[in-house]
Design a protein around this nucleic acid. Structure first.
Lengths: 117, 117
DNA sequence: GCATCATATGCCGATATCGGAATGCGTCAA
DNA sequence: TTGACGCATTCCGATATCGGCATATGATGC
């Protein structure tokens, strides 16, 4: 028997990990340097467990690393995992430049179709 | 009363739309030019309804556009929506270059800490 | 030890997601 | 008109996801 499958686990894929807006916010903040969990939660207006859970996902895909500092745990950025995403989207760069005329023609078609309604 | 919210709808966000591996495959294929649904489904080894559903998501975030061609419906790439993703990840470029020494230092710390156990 | 602060984890409910299968709808050709 | 083709939509079941809340774990200091 074949059981149905759902979406791939977020923890296995960087694309999925950064699909969450709050996780993207965390990564942006961490560009300024390491931060403890509570500080992140406070600055982003989320609860401490919420921040911890997002950080766990980010850690599992390797986008952040953590370091014990006394009573606290400092999270820091490891942006290397973002490079494949950058390169993947970069593979489309010539398409979002090259195709302006084709797109313009398409937009004209839309306008015309709308007037004919 | 406050009802809980789940993940943001995939149709509202390009990041979410490209979180799906099969949707990324579709986009890659469309770089070679417009294709009808059945051809996409066949080349990617998925069912026709499966392809249609993924194409619908991609259309709703604006990454593909469709055009009627007789009995068929041709899907074409509109890569402009990928540009924000490229730029967002690009904002981390200096971190996946610059931080090699910091990462080295971090690895050294780990080794040292391990020896002190 | 005990209290306290910082963080992680577990459980829950609501919803989103994905694949499969069946079916609906539109278009073309005979 | 009827059939065949191409594609979209719908329903379904299993699972993933996210937020909130309570609670466990862990480290520090007294």
């Amino acid at each position: 028997m074949m059981l149905p499958m759902a979406r791939a686990a977020t923890t296995s894929d960087v694309f999925n990990a950064i699909a969450e807006p709050q996780r993207r916010e965390i990564l942006l903040l961490l560009r300024a340097g390491e931060r403890p969990v509570t500080e992140l939660a406070q600055e982003l207006g989320m609860t401490q467990p919420g921040a911890s859970k997002h950080l766990r996902v980010l850690r599992e895909v390797g986008l952040v690393r953590d370091r014990k500092a006394g009573k606290q745990r400092l999270y820091g950025l490891d942006a290397r995992g973002l490079r494949p995403v950058h390169e993947w989207t970069g593979g489309f760069e010539r398409f979002w430049n090259e195709s302006f005329d084709r797109l313009d023609a398409y937009v004209q078609d839309l306008k015309q179709a709308r007037q004919e309604e």
